[in-house]
Design a protein around this nucleic acid. Sequence first.
RNA 1: AGAGACAGCCAGACGGUUGCGUGGGACUUGUUCCUACGAGGAAAGUCCGAGCACCACAGAGCAAGAGUGCAGGAUAACGUCCUGUGAAGGCGACUUUAAGGAAAGUGCAACAGAAAUAUACCGCAGCGCAAGCUGUAAGGGUGGAAAUGCAGGGUAAGAGCCUACACACGCUUUGGUGACAACGCGUGCAUGUAAACCCCACUCGGUGCAAGAACUGAGACCAAAUGCCUGCUCGGCAUCUCGACAUAUUCGCUAGAGACUGUUGGUAACAACAGCCGUAGAAAGAUAACCGUCCAAUACAGAACUCGGCUUACAGACUGAACUCUUACA
RNA 2: GGCGGCGUAGCUUAGAUGGUUAUAGCGGCCGGUUCAUACCCGGCAGGUCGUUGGUUCGAAUCCGACCGCCGCUA
Length: 110
Amino acid sequence: MKSIYRLKKNYQYNYVYKHAKSLSDKNFVLLYCTSNQKQSKVGFSISKKFGHAVARNRLRRQLKAAVMQYAARLVPNFNIVFIPRLQDKYLFSDVIASVEKLLTKAGLIK
RNA sequence: AGAGACAGCCAGACGGUUGCGUGGGACUUGUUCCUACGAGGAAAGUCCGAGCACCACAGAGCAAGAGUGCAGGAUAACGUCCUGUGAAGGCGACUUUAAGGAAAGUGCAACAGAAAUAUACCGCAGCGCAAGCUGUAAGGGUGGAAAUGCAGGGUAAGAGCCUACACACGCUUUGGUGACAACGCGUGCAUGUAAACCCCACUCGGUGCAAGAACUGAGACCAAAUGCCUGCUCGGCAUCUCGACAUAUUCGCUAGAGACUGUUGGUAACAACAGCCGUAGAAAGAUAACCGUCCAAUACAGAACUCGGCUUACAGACUGAACUCUUACA
RNA sequence: GGCGGCGUAGCUUAGAUGGUUAUAGCGGCCGGUUCAUACCCGGCAGGUCGUUGGUUCGAAUCCGACCGCCGCUA
């Protein structure tokens, strides 16, 4: 994932948390809001409850890989944040399914 | 064959599709292409020690505080490591060990017990009609601890009162660099606690890469005051106000007390020399996602300035020296 | 990344510096009072003192290691 697709700064995340609409299923919470940037940006927020750094990194990488599959179809002018909900295990197939479902529901992919 | 003891190493491999970070190169100069490299033995906990940076060059004196604590050595240094000594544990190979001082002083030791740093309750023996007095510390009982234990002699009964053995302490000699050990002689000096205060010896300035350096607009100002250098005395350093940006950018940022191999010295930790190898450096944070094959099966776990240790977590596989005990056979 | 602090009953806590008996309030249970409830009165239960080793005759307290939680830091 190229760096221009990413949300970077703390204030950007805070902006999303304040102004966002939210959607969720049992795996993830999706927050999104409009932005003045041309390119839509995606961020991930994974809490320490998920375990050690290795476990959190792995979940973030799986999410990244899932979102990458829809990167070309993303609608512009949006900031998006994914927050996983606490589960015992994440299968990659479930992650892809949830991401697609949420993005479609929010109307963020064409 | 079984059961152990010691030292060390590895931490899945290969292939495919789609991707990420840094360096280098190319050109059509950018959301481009090619290429090289890209987490650990603990990266963890942050418990010690250093480098490095700023505070003056890390300082001078006093006070306070903190740490270390058998000996010799290693090391840049250490609270680490090695080799030993003593002690404790184990049949043994071997393992563990915060191991100075209680005769400098102070404090504390509940309950029990006659008595807790001091003593005589029961008892034993002598004297006495008896009450009791005297001698005693064998035996009883309490306790973590009660005049060193045990055997014999001795005695009115007893007692290091005497003797042998053991234990503890002191001294001489011998050995050892030393901790200490051995032999001999003397003594039996009344408890424990210093991870209680303390004494002795040695060590320690503070803050930490969010350290710190560079760049940026306008105004005021040159000596008072303030702050900092953990307390005080010296000695020294820095400087203000408003605004803008929006928490940025660049540097620090990775070659270092470096790894590997060999030789030499050393019991060893380690050192010297020679050869040879390689280079993670991000900033919401890269090193991956998915699939296939092999395999009985992959644990603990993710760099954030850098090293040396310690501690803790950890599936499985392997190696070395040929070390110990038991059983069987020759 | 760095620095610092706190864990005692269901909840809030005392005791820790200075070692030997774990304390109080709220809450819970039982009884009394009342026609009944509350208030009130009396009693009772409830603790591996975060875990685990060590020092000591003896550890909530002293020392070490680990676990969990919280705060500060341009």
